[in-house]
Amino acid sequence: MAPNTTASTIVDPFADHRWSESSRAPHIEVRDVTVSFGAYTAIRDIELNIARGEFVSLIGHSGCGKSTLLNLMAGLGRPTAGTIRIEGQIVEGPGADRCMVFQHHGLLPWLSVYDNIYVAVDAARRTHSAEEKAARTQRVLQAVRMWDHRTKKPGMLSGGQRQRVAVARAFAVAPSVLLLDEPFGAVDALTKRALHRELVELSSIVGSTETVVMVTHDIDEAIFLSDRIVVMTDGPAAGIREIVDVPIERPRTLADVMHSAVYIELRDHLLALLGDDEPR
């Protein structure tokens, strides 16, 4: 991926993928997906194609079923109707091609930071040698600046540090699809900026992650990171209200994005779409 890394410019790993291969079969294909829990319908008739190399955000109010949709892609749930395909294969359960960063980090509290990553690497790459797995664990921990904290347990870390480890763990198993479920929802605004930067850096260092789907309710985060933003309607029976393109050149820096006219326009548009006064 993009080779030039200087201190001032952030290399955007998603730069070369965008749209370039989208004319072919979508990497993730959501077709007529409905999820019901008994009489309650969470999401209804969702249609969404995500191209290989795209970064797509799902945005909407709490309870609009965006996490439900993400869980379906992860294989943690099955649609009541419709299908989800990844690389043309119907998703029937979790797979090594996908990985997820959980909303509440999902780290195992009894394992050290190092062991949390190593266990995941070990499970995903059973055939690799112990040295390779250790090297990979070290690489991702260094990338998120958590190597010095490797012996600590998650309970001794700050919220931002925990989320860093959770992101590192997902990258450590080198999935081609990365699913992020409000990964930075629990961290403060300043830490969040740093984590966004690290997410971008990490994908250039560790590579192999092609497509990213992120659930968020942070408009700025969605604009900065995404190629497209899927705005969902409120539940029950949530659907897609609009899919918004983010036509900002990559690589992006936060300053560029914040100062572009497109950003302000997009932000207003998204705010209007998500605003409470907006009719359904």
Binding site: A74, G75, L76, G93, P94, G95, A96, R98, C99, M100, F102, H104, G106, L108, V119, A120, D122, A123, A124, R126, R169, V173
Partner: peptide, 15 residues
């Protein structure tokens, strides 16, 4: 959440 981690990272039953 711990069960989901085990599923997503495909832990073996022994793990």
């Amino acid at each position: 959440s711990h069960r989901n981690v085990a599923r997503v990272f495909e832990f073996s039953p022994a793990t």
